[in-house]
Computed example of a mutant assay.
Amino acid sequence: MSSISDIIERYLIKIINEAPAGTVQVKRSELADLFQCVPSQINYVISTRFTVEKGYIVESKRGGGGYIRIRKVRISSFKAYYDALLRMIGSQITQAAAEDLIARLREEDLMTDREAKMIRQLISREVLNLPVHLRDPIRARVMRAVVMTLFASKGE
């Protein structure tokens, strides 16, 4: 059985994919009414499931006329996407952010399910059994190598 968070996420992804520009603007309170939940549940779903690592940009305005605008990022070129990914990874990356990035690469068919599973294992806390101040930079180096290899193999 799906959780309310899964249901809200699927709904938002569906309307984003149906939107011609890949952008939707919604009201927190209207979504909360639609799904019969508290507005903080909507905030939770948006803040955890619509991240930059997953390929979304979220803007919000609070107050009476407030809204949440969610946009699926579309990169204009393969090179721009590659550069954006390397910037996103930076010099250190958390396990959660790296896993989101892996999911995005998989969703965009830049890696197979098997590759994604292997890389998730390689960047896990269990494998990188080091203090955080070492683990996140090493994870970033692994993820940068993964991105460079994936893009090099695409020949562009």
Rank of each mutant, 00 (worst) to 15 (best):
G55F: 03
G55Q: 03
Y56M: 07
I57R: 10
I57T: 11
I57C: 03
I57E: 13
V58C: 06
E59P: 01
E59H: 07
S60D: 05
S60N: 10
S60G: 02
K61H: 04
R62S: 14
G63D: 01
G63Y: 01
G63K: 03
G64M: 01
G64Y: 05
G65H: 12
G66Q: 10
G66W: 06
G66Y: 08
G66A: 09
Y67V: 05
Y67E: 04
Y67R: 08
Y67A: 03
Y67P: 11
I68K: 05
I68P: 01
I68N: 03
I68C: 08
R69A: 08
R69G: 02
R69T: 11
I70A: 10
I70H: 04
I70S: 02
R71L: 05
R71D: 02
R71G: 00
R71S: 12
K72C: 02
K72D: 04
K72F: 00
V73Y: 00
V73Q: 13
R74Y: 06
I75P: 03
I75W: 11
I75Y: 14
S76A: 09
S76W: 01
S76G: 09
S76L: 07
S76T: 12
S76R: 11
S77W: 07
S77M: 09
S77Y: 09
F78Y: 10
K79P: 03
K79R: 15
K79Q: 15
K79D: 14
A80S: 13
A80G: 12
A80E: 15
Y81G: 11
Y81T: 01
Y81V: 01
Y81H: 15
Y81R: 08
Y82Q: 14
Y82P: 10
D83E: 14
D83I: 09
A84G: 10
A84K: 13
A84R: 14
A84I: 05
A84S: 12
L86A: 05
L86H: 05
R87H: 13
R87N: 15
